[in-house]
C-alpha cells in the first residue's frame, strides 16, 4: 500500500514502491527524475476529477457488441519444444533455465 499524503505529492518512497511492483531498479538520480515526472503527469491527470461520472459505467470494451467470444474445445497443434525455447536466454534439457527462484509465490 502506498502511503497517502495530504498534499497529493508523489514521494520518493512512492516511486520506489511502484518501481518495486514493476520490477524496475532505479538509481537515486532516476528516482528523483521519475518522481518529478510522475508528479507532474498525475497533477495534470487530476483534472479527471472535474468530470461528473456518477452512474457512468466504465468502458472496458469500447464496443458493446463485443461479447461471448469463445473457441470450441478442439485441439490445435502445439509448437515444438525447440521452437518454444528458440528465444530463451538460457535453456537446458528442454527446460527454460532461470537463476534460482528463492521467493515463494
Amino acid at each position: 500500500m502506498i502511503e497517502r499524503t495530504s498534499d497529493k505529492k508523489i514521494t520518493r518512497d512512492t516511486v520506489r514502491y511502484v518501481a518495486d511492483l514493476a520490477r524496475i531498479s532505479l538509481g537515486e538520480e532516476e528516482t528523483d527524475i521519475f518522481r518529478e515526472h510522475l508528479e507532474q503527469i498525475l497533477k495534470y491527470v487530476e483534472q479527471l476529477e472535474e468530470v461528473d461520472t456518477e452512474n457512468v459505467i466504465p468502458t472496458t470494451h469500447v464496443l458493446s457488441s463485443m461479447k461471448n467470444i469463445f473457441r470450441e474445445d478442439i485441439p490445435a497443434p502445439s509448437i515444438s519444444p525447440e521452437e518454444a525455447l528458440s528465444n530463451a536466454p538460457d535453456k537446458a534439457d528442454g527446460f527454460f533455465k532461470v537463476p534460482r527462484v528463492i521467493k515463494e509465490r
Partner: peptide, 28 residues
C-alpha cells in the same frame, strides 16, 4: 520505464478507483 511506472501506480492498491476506474468512466 516512465509509462510502466505511471501505469503501475494508477492500478496500485488504493489508487485504482481514483485513476484507472475514473479514467474508464471519463472514457465512457
Amino acid at each position: 520505464k516512465r509509462r510502466v511506472l505511471l501505469g503501475t501506480y494508477s492500478l496500485s492498491s488504493g489508487y485504482y478507483g481514483k485513476y484507472y476506474l475514473k479514467a474508464q468512466k471519463v472514457r465512457t
